[in-house]
Design a protein around this nucleic acid. Structure first.
Lengths: 235, 235
DNA sequence: GCAAAAGTGTTCTTCGTACACCCATGA
DNA sequence: TCATGGGTGTACGAAGAACACTTTTGC
């Protein structure tokens, strides 16, 4: 069988997808990376992703690749940019459609150190394959811009969470500190979270102090708000 | 010469770009469309755009195509989505990288009715080729979301403009009405516009009334604000 | 002269922000 | 018992929203 069996009148770039998967461990933002098993960049870490097939859209492609490489199907996944530098892949011309995803760490098979998929803290990233460092930087920038106007923080938290944990998440993403009382007032006033009877597992971040109350995100309340007023989470 | 001279081991989709070009005539938002001269959809109107070449990025591609089809080089152009439905082009699999652009109508060769490039009002759009209606709808949605947080309105106005004109632009994009005094107070307080001595051509929208003052956008002031505070244009 | 558009200020309410003390828990 | 983290309320200032009358111009 001919190895070059797909021919076109004009040259075609390959279409690929890559995804920056963000998680939160209660203290820091984490990134999910996979170790490349083949050339080029074999052995280096990279964003999960791969080439698009002819029978799938880019959205379907990235979901399939994520499932193949990290064994989970994310609920939140958004396309945010396209990377098309001419020499970004040494094999051939590749245009990459970039996504970011937000997951609760509890949902993801936490790959251990020996695994091919592992969480890395933002401050301790290894060298990345291709232009993935650039893709990740832009994903992070997009995340920081979006968090002001959309309640994306909740996608990174467990179903039941405490307000101090949520505050740590916002502080980690935005790199600033907030006043506890004002944060709580604002988030409660918005109405998108409500108190819950479920307990929460004490996060590693809590070593002493009063046991905090547990809350949960009301997606329906937020959906209703989108029409009328506007959800804002600025500080 | 062989018409199928570019061969690959795996099937490749073609990569194309399309751009929704927005203008403002003082009263309504307009869209720049081009009439297709070849099949498929010959004779139908479409967003300007075309196939990416191997020696250009998608950004370079859309700028080249815009120049070829509408004879101008836009200053503001942003990539906002990717369209990759499997059957969106009847010829072959095509993945389209979608952009929007904001232009001052005075900058663009206003194609007359006989030309291949023409402005259409949002409410009087013709049938569009491919999935361009969908692309346009998403471009418009993106524009409406962005205008709250970025001073993109000024890219649609002439260099010297009146505050009532600017207000009409915001009202046209967002589909709402504002109080004149509050709008003026807010936009002046923000500091991003300053009074100008240049006159402005009376827009078709002004049939009577006092001659309004002329203003201009201070890009440097806005750039400085981005760091410190935050520009907001919500009502 | 009349209709249509633009200029101008004040009040009230809402929201953001700064700030201090007590309580529960784990080491 | 002490250090750490979490719960709670108030007062001040800034910004947003509602609101009416006068002036100019084109017809």
């Amino acid at each position: 069988m001919n190895r070059q069996q797909y021919a076109y009148e004009y040259p075609h770039a390959a279409v690929a997808t890559d995804c920056a998967v963000f998680g939160f461990d209660g203290q820091n933002i984490k990134i999910l990376l996979v170790k490349r098993g083949i050339e080029p960049y074999k052995g280096l870490w990279a964003l999960p992703g791969g080439f698009m097939r002819m029978n799938e859209t880019t959205d379907e492609c990235i979901r399939r690749e994520l499932h193949e490489e990290t064994s989970f199907l994310p609920s939140v996944i958004e396309q945010f940019a396209v990377f098309s530098a001419i020499d970004r892949d040494p094999r051939e011309r590749v245009v990459s459609v970039a996504y970011y995803s937000l997951v609760r760490q509890s949902e993801v098979v936490g790959g251990d150190d020996a695994s091919d998929a592992r969480w890395f803290a933002l401050g301790a990233l290894p060298d990345l394959a291709f232009d993935h460092k650039e893709i990740l930087a832009k994903a992070l920038q997009t995340l920081r811009e979006k968090i002001h106007f959309e309640p994306i923080g909740f996608d990174l938290m467990d179903r039941y969470f405490t307000i101090p944990d949520l505050q740590r998440l916002y502080e980690a993403i935005l790199g600033v500190r907030f006043d506890r009382r004002n944060f709580m007032k604002k988030i409660l006033q918005s109405g998108v979270i409500s108190e819950s009877n479920e307990g929460v597992a004490a996060p590693a971040s809590r070593h002493a102090g009063r046991t905090p109350k547990s809350y949960t995100f009301n997606k329906d309340v937020y959906e209703a708000m989108k029409g009328n007023g506007r959800f804002k989470m600025e500080f």
